[in-house]
Write a protein that binds this DNA or RNA. Structure first.
Length: 555
RNA sequence: UGGGACGUCGUCAAGCGGUAAGACACUAGAUUUUGAUUCUAGCAUUCGCAGGUUCGAUCCCUGCCGUCCCAGCCA
């Protein structure tokens, strides 16, 4: 695997060409989030692209908060975003930047446009402006204020800044072309009056610049070489260029649009994600089912795997839909190599070894990783009474089923061969206990006679196991491209309150991803329920048996 | 019906005029004290369609078809 963050793509080709032609000698990118919500997987692609490009080309990447709409933005969001980027393992250049750092310069550039006769104050109402803008089939109509004297616009703009007018009473518009087929060029608004407390400038301003005016100038002021944004901004590029071409500035970054990351069964709308939080459909922005960076972190994904995923979701200009299985594959690959193995039982079924002496117990040696000896071994208590997985017993099972059924011999991982003698049922006919016998000559899990035992199951000592709560997550939505609440998966969370974990794990589990052998990867959650520690299932193991069973059911 | 973009396997995607990489998914088999991992094999005679240029086109040209984005004083 290459040590690059970014795989070769059309943007790296542009950069290579720019470096070779001498247009640039260093790469300067930026990641420009608006602090109005949490970062999600979609943003990760942009983060990995921009910060990754900077790393790969030994350039720099700015973190710049695009904070030009005080009505929606908060310090808390800005802090969460910084934490997420750091957790992903990226470092921004110098200090954190803010578009608001440039408010004075932006204002001066607006004045320059007015003085050049390229911007004017429009006193039409929002409704009038919308109507006059026209639509896809009809060209726009010039505002009656479009040709007002420069001095008048200048005066009004200064008074706008001074707070002499009401919100919405007037706006500053660039004078471009009301006939343009590109709506963005039909005299776009570049400044509006908005009295709202700004996260950095407080109440210093009552006018705020719009995105199209702010973004290009901020990029230029920072000396950005390649301004990468998502496809939907392609229509804004002519405006990006127009602004920089018409003001006095010596830098003109290259805006390049790439495809955003869409993922199956995943909601990427910040607004709709926020609804889930607001309506308590999920347990906050960091609910382990959320596609947010904080959600994935809480669930137990490691940054390496998320980065790997971003790298695989290639940068092109074609709108794409990445299957969630791609993400899961990255997570499994990472965890398979890095997670110590332990044993835990999701749905405990009691098992009694009839020929094992009562009141006695012994220690069993288990490997912490099957492929990596550096993980070492551990000692596990074993005794007469154990818990095994309820699914590991099946009444009247055929030979394809490798686990317990009456009369069948099965290996308990690292321990002994056990033969199931009898299943005890309650009045409802449910199996509540297995009575087994063990072969003392098979300690460690092998026999000298070379007897074949196909199945190996996990277990915990009933006396020593820890009680834990396990939370099993499934996709949050049932639909490939979810649109709203109707598409939610009612079974996205399954809580197992009576799970058992081998002893010695709970105390040292914080921040460690474990594999519960045969069932999946788990990670300690920040919450505690009824004195029981909680673990989140990060992802299941591949289960070809479950798949086989399923296809046979379908037959 | 205006403007912008995009169409290569189920999903991503390489390919840049010389005869279709790779990944995920899927299927079959081998190994296995996790039905995990690993391994092996299979998986587009064809690149939206139709013409044209060329000895030769997924790559160039023309036309058509299809999909996506844009009508916030949001970003």
């Amino acid at each position: 695997m290459s040590d690059k963050n970014v795989t070769e793509n059309f943007i790296t080709q542009i950069i290579d060409a720019d470096l070779e032609s001498g247009k640039h000698s260093q790469v300067m990118t930026r990641f420009p989030p608006e602090p109005n919500g949490f970062l999600h997987v979609g943003h990760v692609k942009s983060i990995c692209l921009n910060f990754g490009l900077a790393e790969d080309y030994q350039g720099l990447c700015n973190l710049r908060f695009d904070d030009t709409n005080p009505a929606k933005e908060s310090i808390e969001y800005a802090q969460a975003i910084q934490r997420d980027i750091e957790w992903l393992g990226f470092k921004w250049n110098d200090k954190v930047m803010y578009s608001s750092d440039y408010f004075d310069q932006l204002y001066a550039y607006a004045i320059e446009l007015i003085e050049k006769g390229l911007a004017f104050i429009d006193e039409q109402s929002p409704e009038e402006i919308r109507e006059m803008r026209g639509d896809f089939t009809h060209p726009g109509v010039n505002s009656p204020f479009r040709d007002r004297p420069i001095e008048e616009s200048l005066d009004l703009f200064k008074r706008m800044k001074a707070g002499e007018f009401e919100d919405g009473q007037m706006v500053l518009r660039a004078k471009i072309d009301m006939q343009s087929g590109n709506l963005n060029m039909r005299d776009p608004i570049i400044y509006r009056i908005k009295r709202a407390h700004h996260i950095r400038t407080g109440d210093q301003w009552c006018i705020y610049p719009m995105y199209d005016f702010t973004h290009c100038i901020s990029d230029a002021l920072e000396g950005i070489t390649h301004s990468n944004c998502t496809l939907e901004f392609a229509d804004h590029k002519p405006l990006y260029d127009w602004v920089l071409d018409n003001i006095t500035i010596d830098c003109h970054p290259h805006q390049i649009e790439f495809n955003r990351l869409n993922q199956t069964f995943t909601m990427m709308s910040k607004r709709k994600l926020n609804e889930l939080v607001e309506q308590d459909v999920v347990d906050g922005w960091d609910d382990p089912r959320m596609p947010t960076v904080s959600g994935m972190r809480r669930r137990g994904y490691r940054p390496q795997s998320i980065r790997q995923y971003a790298k695989k979701s290639t940068v092109t200009r074609k709108p794409s839909m990445i299957p969630m299985s791609m993400l899961e594959d990255c997570v499994r690959q990472d965890l398979n190599a890095s997670a110590p193995r332990i044993m835990g039982v999701l749905n405990p079924l009691k098992l009694v070894i009839e020929n094992y002496p009562e009141g006695e117990s012994e220690m069993i040696t288990a490997h912490n990783h099957p492929m990596d000896e550096s993980f070492g071994t551990r000692e596990l208590p074993f005794g007469r009474e154990l818990y095994i997985e309820a699914d590991d017993y099946k009444e009247g099972a055929n030979r394809k089923f490798f686990r317990f059924t009456e009369g069948r011999e099965v290996r308990l991982r690292y321990a002994y061969y056990l033969t199931c003698q009898k299943a005890i049922k309650n009045e409802a006919g449910e199996v509540i206990e297995l009575r087994c016998t063990y072969d003392p000559a098979t300690k460690g899990g092998c026999s000298e006679d070379g007897r074949k035992v196909k199945g190996t199951i996990h277990w915990v000592s009933a006396e020593h196991a820890d009680d834990v709560e396990l939370r099993l997550y499934d996709r949050l939505y049932n639909v490939v491209s979810p649109k709203g609440m109707d598409d939610l998966n009612p079974d996205s969370l399954k809580v197992l309150e009576n799970a058992k974990l081998e002893p010695g794990i709970v105390e040292k589990s914080e921040g460690v991803q474990y594999q519960l052998e045969r069932t999946g990867y788990f990670f300690r959650d920040k919450t505690h329920e009824k004195d029981k520690p909680v673990f989140n299932r990060i992802v299941t193991l591949r289960d070809s048996w479950a798949r086989q069973e399923q296809t046979e059911e379908q037959k």
